[in-house]
Design a protein around this nucleic acid. Structure first.
Length: 128
RNA sequence: GGGGCAAGCCAGGUGGCCGCGACGGGGCCGCGUCGCGAUGCUCCUUGGAGCUCGCGAGGCACCUCGUCGAGGAAAGUCCGGACACCACAGAGCAGGGCGCUGGCUAACGGCCAGCCGGGGAAACCCGAGGGAAAGCGCAACAGAGAGCAGACCGCCAGCGGCCCCUUUCGAGGGGUGCGGGUAAGGGUGAAACGGUGAGGUAAGAGCUCACCAGCGGUCCUGGUGACAGGCCGGCUCGGCAAGCCCCGCCCGGUGCAAGACCAAAUAGGGGAGCGUUUGAGGGUUGCUCGCCCGAGGCUCCCGGGUUUCGGUCGCAUGAGGCGCGCGGCAACGUGCGUCCCAGAUGGAUGGUCACCCACGACAGGAUCCGGCUUACGGCUUGCUACUGAG
RNA sequence: GCCCCCAUCGUCUAGCGGCCUAGGACACCGGCCUUUCAAGCCGGCGGCACGGAUUCGAAUUCCGUUGGGGGCA
């Protein structure tokens, strides 16, 4: 996870997931998930992130992306194979990012895990 | 000591563990490529093609080791360049920018040094700072008068009429009215046709004088120059050009999504009419000229396409950093030595633990460089005025 | 990333440097009219994105911020 191979790169991949995938949302995040066709050669789950400029400048956006990537990777062993995921950060996520900075660890991870469970791509619920 | 002003510097550090990007070395053979071999199998036209197996090479992925890995503003995109393309880039007009002087620079609207003006108690700071006797234009309201000025309240003597007072009966004084002189004072305004003082006068006025301000001079001195100082003259009205404009200088356009190469897929078809080197039509900068392309083009009809956000390069050795010397007040230039210091492409720097006088603020490269502007934490040094103590 | 444009009441917009304490329409509020509502009439509320500069004087001119919008494969 988090290597080049397991990241979504092409815009066409994003478009396919938006059009054909199913979506789940909370007030912090939006999750799109899509089961790849069998003939696709990639292996393992792939992740794409979308953090708009409304969230802040480049420093803030990079931090948000790092936290999200880390949170998804924390569930990596329990994720269903052959799924493509797109996680979109909403502006209210900034509250969780701020709490994370003041020492309240794991709130972003909890938000991500909740969505993954709801979307049904998490095989079993791991401990917090 | 707390203020003010200026200049310079830093951008948390060190170590451990986990994690990310690039490059390089090694390992491995999961995937595809190429080469060789086989007594193998299939097809068939001598000989080749395909499949299977084995060996080797180098590539992608993976594992491992090492090195490097954001900023002073990386930002805003406000200027200036480099670089690339536009059928070469030329001229004129239009348009845009700049504007004290001298220098620096690849260039600049930048920087340095100075001049002048303004602000401040000072240190110091700020200034788009050419031209208003080339022309056009603007100045609301108020005010008498605002662009060849003007006379409301005033001041002044004289003359004639009327009224009042005094009278030595000659006249004198006051008021009012008309025409006249004047612009000192009041009042309006952002701005009122030089200011202050003295003389002068009926009252006044550059009317005269002194100083100051301003203007002018084939004048003198200093300075490369902006300009400064002096002398002389006649006494003398401005403001706005970030209004149009004039003068001088500069600017071709588009921007790395520029542009070059590679791969895959699709298409580049047909008919009729017009027109032909004396040139249809098109391109080039907004226009004109000029230049370039030019048998192909235009009109109509039928049919089809204008796609894949593909990959590689451009893409990091440069007006480069650091140290020392020399020239220069400085910006900067130059010589020698030394170093290689991000190169991503859904886009990399973080997390955690320990210590350090604990946390740090603003904030993340995207073609590169020189500036400007904006955001922002701290440290050091110097200068300036004030206050307190000895 | 590169290159452009815009900003005036809640909305859509006028606005020659002075007549601007910024005009109009719709909306909103109050009143009149009507049995009531609508329409109509009268009145009110409400704005030059922000900070400097030029000017006697700035919504207007200039510079810088901020916030929107658009184009380029």
């Amino acid at each position: 996870m988090a290597t080049k191979r397991s990241r979504l790169s092409r815009s066409s991949d994003f478009q396919r997931i938006y059009r054909q995938g199913s979506s789940t949302a909370s007030r912090f995040l939006v999750l799109y998930s899509f089961k790849r066709p069998a003939e696709a050669d990639a292996e393992g789950p792939r992740l794409g992130l979308s953090v708009s400029k409304k969230l802040g400048g480049a420093v803030v956006r990079n931090r948000v992306k790092r936290l999200l990537r880390e949170a998804v990777q924390g569930c990596a062993g329990h994720l269903a194979e052959e799924y493509d995921l797109v996680v979109i950060a909403r502006p209210q996520l900034l509250e969780l990012v701020a709490r994370e900075s003041t020492g309240e660890k794991g709130v972003v991870g909890a938000a991500v895990r909740e969505l993954l469970v709801r979307a049904g791509v998490l095989n079993e619920v791991p401990g917090p």
